[in-house]
Design a protein around this nucleic acid. Structure first.
Ligand code: FES
Ligand code: FES
Lengths: 146, 146
DNA sequence: TTTAATTCCTACCATTTTGATAGGGAATAT
DNA sequence: ATATTCCCTATCAAAATGGTAGGAATTAAA
């Protein structure tokens, strides 16, 4: 299946948890892991990527934890996925035409460029705020499969 | 990068070659491999999948080769990618909600379902005919990267 | 009926990616 | 001081990826 890796999937869930707590101080990664039923030690590998891309900020020591870097309205799913999975593109030649000498006429590339644009447009138009704006009860995902 | 595998990418190029020759008898896989500068022995693994999904038909022996199963107008990129990469879906819970007990309320799932739908819509609306309808000169892709 | 062409099938393999676990170091609020 | 929390590095098993190799089966044509 053409699926996102756990980086993208778990990472989105981390961001969702942080979005729900936005404005109420830092949240423990341990708490996020518990809420989402994901392995803490693995999330410790994912969250530094989000930090590097200025999507979260961290506070060390007691009472520390993580918070969103900015308002959930200003964080799109596209930003999250691009941070975690790298550039979005069905083929590498969409983003880097130089990998192919025939790039100006290649029919495949034309197709993938269209698909690429649609995906990006979609991801760009969904923010964390959109995710949390409807009722939040029972929204936790207890399953490890996603 | 969130990229298609070589199955999806090479496979699309195989289908493109066959589409260009549609109505003119079988085409050798060797010829396809040469045109697209792809390893023949590897394409021999990919094309049976296309055959199994009724996208191509084969003729054995001399003067044999492969042909499209139906008109390029009736073959969408979605069919090709789904045959080769399996179901398209950013997460498995989009196609199989039962993997998660919270699927009716899971906010992540809602997001991925929207993205999934957009991708499928896009891929469904591009056919092999669309790929070949403009000029065909210099359209071969000599680079192995795509 | 031989021969050559072509698809088809199975096995194997090296490398990379994925999805973690483990242990401890650094910073800091109390 | 101490407990808490993030941070960093190493390691690793399993799976996926992207092939290569060899030959069997089928068949058109000489
Ligand atoms: S491989 Fe995409 S432009 Fe040629
Ligand atoms: S993991 Fe997607 S529905 Fe819960």
């Amino acid at each position: 299946m053409w699926q996102l890796s756990t980086k993208g999937r778990y990472g989105t869930r981390i961001m969702y948890q942080l979005a729900m707590k936005y404005g109420n101080g830092p949240m423990l990664l341990k708490e996020i892991a518990a809420n989402e039923n994901l392995p803490l030690k693995y999330l410790e590998h994912i969250i530094p990527i989000l930090k590097k891309h200025k999507l979260v900020i961290s506070t060390r020591g007691p009472q520390g934890g993580y918070q969103l870097f900015k308002d959930p309205k200003d964080i799109s799913i596209k930003m999250i996925i691009e941070a975690l999975e790298g550039d979005i593109a069905p083929t590498s030649c969409v983003e880097s035409p130089q990998v192919c000498e025939k790039n100006t006429t290649c029919k495949s590339r034309k197709i993938w460029a269209i698909v690429d644009e649609k995906i990006k447009e979609t991801l760009k138009n969904i923010t964390l705020h959109d995710m949390i704006e409807d009722n939040m009860e029972n929204s936790l995902c207890k399953n490890i499969v996603l």
